[in-house]
Computed example of a mutant assay.
Amino acid sequence: MKQHFTSALSQTFGRFASKEHGKNFQKMINRTYVKAMGLDMSDFEAPESYPTLNALFTRKFRHMRKYSTDPLDMISPCDSLITECGVIEEDLALQIKGMSYSVDGVLGDGITAESKKNVHNGLFVNFYLSPRDYHRYHAPLDMQVLRAVHIPGKLYPVNIPSLKKQVNLFIENERVVLECLSSEGKRFFLILVGALNVGEMEISFEPRIRTNTVLTPSQYSYKDLYLSKGDDFGCFRMGSTIVMLCESNMVDLGISSGHNVRFGQTIARITS
């Protein structure tokens, strides 16, 4: 496939955001961004302490947030807006009210048909991370990662206006699909969806995945890769979306569309 113009634009922005612009100018860039976007920096270091705009985007907590240690509580993997959530009808989930996407399509060719069928008629949650949100993502529960699939694609914006007008946005955009199992053996997927100006999606346990760089798909399988609830496993370089797809009867959701959630907040109860 050829590089899409949205990918080229994102690479250009990424080079600017990754560059150290000199101490005083960088302070001005960081402070301007924090003020313009309305970032809440109370859990983080001061804006001027970050050497690049990307370092500010991918900031880590000074102290880890507290979250439920009950193994049956699923927590939000990120700070975000829930744009849609609910039941997957056969293999269709909502991109936004009135517009569906195919679960099989968003999972791509690197996931087997049998694995895809596991989440048919299950539950989905779309987490939208805006440019002002904390950009790192965490394990929502104790989990085993079976496979990571990188699917190159376009980098259209994923904000609400774009969700309403761009058909199959999650399928068109570049993404990384993680196939996982819960401690109870239920299958679920975390799909990291790229967006305009998201030059990279970092997967800390899989450095071979280089998003917005290579144009051919890749996939990696694991036998003994486990993440504990709350583990930090990477970040977006600016805002984007995480789609979570769960097997039927795996969880009872405690959220609804339009809710703002924070990483660590309990969003569902695992059915025992």
Score class of each variant (00 low, 15 high):
residue 138 H to W: 01
residue 138 H to I: 04
residue 138 H to D: 05
residue 139 A to N: 13
residue 139 A to I: 12
residue 140 P to Q: 13
residue 140 P to A: 05
residue 140 P to V: 11
residue 140 P to I: 11
residue 141 L to W: 13
residue 142 D to E: 10
residue 142 D to W: 06
residue 142 D to V: 08
residue 144 Q to S: 12
residue 145 V to Q: 03
residue 146 L to V: 00
residue 147 R to F: 00
residue 147 R to S: 10
residue 148 A to C: 05
residue 149 V to D: 09
residue 150 H to C: 06
residue 150 H to D: 07
residue 150 H to L: 12
residue 150 H to A: 10
residue 150 H to V: 13
residue 151 I to S: 03
residue 151 I to R: 05
residue 151 I to L: 13
residue 152 P to W: 03
residue 152 P to K: 06
residue 152 P to T: 08
residue 152 P to R: 07
residue 154 K to R: 11
residue 154 K to Q: 12
residue 154 K to W: 08
residue 154 K to S: 15
residue 155 L to C: 09
residue 156 Y to R: 05
residue 156 Y to G: 01
residue 156 Y to D: 08
residue 157 P to K: 14
residue 157 P to W: 06
residue 157 P to L: 08
residue 159 N to D: 15
residue 159 N to E: 06
residue 159 N to W: 09
residue 160 I to Y: 14
residue 160 I to N: 05
residue 160 I to M: 11
residue 161 P to L: 08
residue 161 P to Q: 07
residue 162 S to P: 08
residue 164 K to I: 04
residue 165 K to N: 06
residue 165 K to Q: 13
residue 166 Q to G: 02
residue 166 Q to R: 14
residue 166 Q to A: 09
residue 166 Q to F: 11
residue 167 V to E: 15
residue 167 V to F: 12
residue 167 V to Y: 14
residue 167 V to I: 15
residue 167 V to D: 15
residue 167 V to L: 14
residue 169 L to G: 04
residue 169 L to K: 07
residue 170 F to E: 07
residue 172 E to H: 14
residue 173 N to Q: 03
residue 173 N to V: 07
residue 174 E to Q: 14
residue 174 E to T: 10
residue 174 E to W: 10
residue 174 E to P: 09
residue 175 R to A: 02
residue 175 R to S: 01
residue 175 R to K: 01
residue 177 V to N: 00
residue 177 V to F: 00
residue 179 E to H: 01
residue 179 E to K: 10
residue 180 C to Y: 02
residue 181 L to R: 10
residue 181 L to G: 01
residue 182 S to Q: 07
residue 182 S to T: 15
residue 182 S to M: 07
residue 184 E to P: 03
residue 185 G to V: 03
residue 185 G to H: 09
residue 185 G to N: 09
residue 186 K to Q: 10
residue 187 R to K: 15
residue 188 F to I: 04
residue 189 F to M: 02
residue 190 L to H: 03
residue 191 I to E: 06
residue 192 L to E: 10
residue 194 G to K: 02
